[in-house]
């Protein structure tokens, strides 16, 4: 029951994050696409993620990819790091906070491996 609730919460948060950052991506395109607009501040970044199984990490990577504005390029299971390419690197704290707040709690309930922590 706890797992079901976690899965539903995760899904709802994921849908919300997709829509919110979808419109943010559209804003970036409009801002940098008009004549004379500066190119967006793209960057490669690494983010640590909570201890979880390989399936959980793959799902986390897919969710981060589906959330507009960030694409998973690589998942390092040994160091527990996601390698991301982000379109708007001006507010990296919000990006990390979004992953920690929206995705990790649910995934840890479903796929967590606390022994590895």
């Amino acid at each position: 029951m706890k797992r079901l609730a976690a899965a539903v919460t995760l899904l709802l948060r994921f849908v919300r994050a997709t829509f919110v950052s979808g419109f943010e991506t559209v804003a970036v395109i409009i801002k940098s696409g008009r004549p004379g607009g500066a190119p967006p501040p793209v960057a490669f970044l690494r983010v640590r993620f909570a201890p979880m199984s390989a399936q959980g990490a793959a799902l986390l990577g897919s969710m981060v990819s589906l959330t507009p504005g960030s694409t998973t390029i690589d998942i390092d299971m040994e160091r527990r790091e996601l390698l991301l390419h982000v379109l708007d690197a001006s507010d990296t704290d919000a990006l990390v906070a979004g992953i920690r707040r929206d995705f990790e709690p649910g995934l840890r309930v479903l796929f967590g491996t606390e022994a590895a922590a």
């Binding site: 829509f19 395109i29 793209v42 589906l66 379109l87």
Partner: peptide, 26 residues
């Protein structure tokens, strides 16, 4: 249309990819 415009206007393949796959799917 905005997603397609992003594919035209953004500077490199990696950022264009954001526009095409994410904004297009939205």
């Amino acid at each position: 249309v905005i997603a397609a415009w992003g594919v035209i206007s953004l500077p490199d393949a990696l950022s264009r990819q954001h526009a095409a796959t994410k904004a297009g799917t939205l």
